[in-house]
């Protein structure tokens, strides 16, 4: 009865069909990997560009001179990764759909909890105590020192007026990064605004 052909995958096909299946999956993975490597991962951003992001494009940030956008790590619906020299700025749009925090401190605590994921992944993360600050567009923000492995920098929480959403930002770079790059990163943070039209530059 073992010779009974219940389906078309019998005899030698029972050997080569699974090998072909595995080969197709490996080939597809390899082709997609090669394509991803062949394309440029980042693009320079013209000075003065205002990028709108967030689930409905409700957040904007203006980028100064010398920045590049990491396209593979950026998504207009959720956040951006910008780099200049050795300094990187990660802007993440957060909507507190699960529960509106009472204040920025709760948002900061949430961000600290999320950094715990990196700790459990084996990354050394240290977040300092937050200090209040305001920008031209945002009041009641918090910032504090941040260290991720050997990179140092600052973490920011920039809440919207109604505390229903926020932008969480991480500015990181090596200890000896150029001071001009740090200053340029701070300018991006200062430019973050909610639902504000900005006609000073082109929109990406």
């Amino acid at each position: 009865m073992d010779d009974f052909k219940g389906n078309a995958v019998h005899g030698a096909r029972r050997v080569w069909v699974p090998l072909v299946v595995a080969g197709v999956l490996l080939a597809l993975t390899a082709v997609e990997g090669l394509l991803a490597k062949a394309l440029p991962a980042s693009e320079p951003v013209p000075a003065g560009t205002v990028i709108e992001f967030g689930s409905t494009g409700q957040v904007s940030a203006q980028v100064g001179e010398g920045w590049t956008l990491d396209r593979t790590a950026s998504d207009l619906h959720s956040g951006l990764l910008l780099t200049r020299g050795d300094v990187s700025v990660r802007l993440t749009s957060v909507e507190f759909s699960a529960g509106k925090p009472d204040n920025a401190q709760e948002m900061w605590d949430g961000m600290e909890r999320l950094l715990g994921v990196a700790r459990h992944s084996g990354t050394e993360v240290w977040l300092g105590e937050p200090t209040e600050f305001d920008t031209k567009w945002i009041t009641g923000g918090l910032y504090g020192s941040l260290q991720v492995d050997t990179a140092i920098g600052t973490a920011f929480v920039l809440p919207a007026d109604d505390d229903a959403e926020a932008v969480e930002a991480q500015v990181l770079g090596p200890f000896d990064a150029d001071q001009a790059d740090w200053t340029a990163a701070t300018e991006i943070i200062d430019s973050v605004a909610f639902d504000e039209d900005d006609d000073t530059g082109e929109t990406a």
């Binding site: 990997g33 394509l35 991803a36 991962a41 956008l69 396209r71 950026s74």
Partner: peptide, 24 residues
């Protein structure tokens, strides 16, 4: 597991080849 690996690569292809808005 296979999809996680492949998706990471192909998403990267789209984000690099399409505009940021279209890719998103």
């Amino acid at each position: 597991g296979i999809a996680i690996l492949m998706n990471t690569r192909l998403l990267s292809v789209w984000s690099q080849s399409l505009g940021l808005e279209a890719a998103s």
